[in-house]
Computed example of a mutant assay.
Amino acid sequence: MNSTHRDVDTDVVIVGGGPAGLSAALSLGRARRQVLVVDQARPRNRTALHMHGVLGHDGLPPLELLEKGRREIAAYGVRVVVGDAVSARADEEGVEVTTDAGTIRARHLIVATGLTDELPEIPGLREQWGTGAVVCPYCDGWEHRHHVIGVVATSAQSVGQAQLLRQWSDRVVYFPNVVGEPDAAEADALARRGIRVERGAVESLVTSNDRLEGIRLAQRTVPVDVVFTGPTLRPNDALLRSLGARAADGPAGSWIDADRDGRTSLPRVWAVGNVVDPRANVSVSLGLGSLTAGAVNAELVQEDITRAPAVGTSPLASGTAL
């Protein structure tokens, strides 16, 4: 499945081998396009034991999904190389991607490099990330229904996360930490739904044999079964920015601008998945990858038409009766 390369020419190079990138590769491979995937093999959800809410794959380990995907695309001649895309350039004629193994010249580039979760600097949090500490209620809420759920604030918006998690448990504990103190209306809303507020700076997560037991505050430890918190989301978009792709500022920061088909502001350069949409979970990324692949293939078809040599005048073009 994985291979190396020196200098190659292909129809499409895809940088990023997560759900979005592999989904695009599958559709393009089935369309008989030559495709090369460059992947660092460090998916965002690599620390999670299972993924949920993915129809047909509920409970499947996320790394197993990617392994199955790589086997499937290999059946259509798609190559995967493990490595890093160092730089790229693009113009009206094509794209060129330089990796740590060589240069890839392609007609189109799809960037599906995802994002990085920047975690709060709380001792023990990184070690628990993906198991005892998580972010998405829709991914992990069911598994912790009726449990004691601790919500560690990372901003004023964390109050909403606590209210959302009340859907799964009536034992939600909100930790304002030093950044998420609720205002009077929010405090009243938390109290009315039975969400306890534990004030004070969070010093660390308390574990025993790698299992989460509680949250340590200055003078006490509050027992919890799981921690939900909100990391800062940083798109892995250095390649797109080096190319000069247009970005737009929003509530979640600055993100590369891409339309519904994944087109960026640059010719022949596309972006899909978490690198341009922080809301794109596995299911959404799979669908968007397929959608972008269809748009890319449609442009390739138009290019094929333009490049095709003339073969003579057709009867209809000359006005000859059939």
Rank of each mutant, 00 (worst) to 15 (best):
R6W: 00
D11N: 13
V12Q: 02
V13L: 01
G16V: 00
G16D: 06
A20V: 07
A25T: 04
L28P: 00
R33W: 07
V37D: 01
V38I: 15
D39K: 03
R44K: 14
A48D: 13
H50I: 10
H52K: 11
L55C: 11
L63E: 14
G77W: 05
V81Y: 01
V82F: 00
D84W: 07
A90L: 03
V97C: 06
T98E: 15
T98I: 09
A101Y: 06
I104S: 00
R105D: 06
A106M: 11
R107T: 14
R107G: 14
A112H: 02
L119P: 08
L119E: 03
E121V: 14
R126V: 10
G130H: 07
V134G: 03
C136H: 04
H147T: 14
H147Y: 07
V151W: 05
T154S: 13
Q161H: 15
A162D: 04
L164G: 01
W168N: 04
V172F: 02
P176M: 01
E181P: 00
A185D: 14
G194A: 01
E198H: 08
R199Y: 04
R211T: 15
G214K: 11
T221M: 09
T221S: 12
T221P: 09
V224T: 08
D225M: 05
V227W: 05
L233N: 04
D261G: 15
G262W: 07
R263M: 02
S265D: 07
V269C: 09
A271R: 12
S283Y: 09
G287W: 11
L288C: 05
G294K: 03
V296N: 10
V301Q: 12
Q302A: 15
Q302S: 14
I305S: 11
V311K: 13
G312T: 12
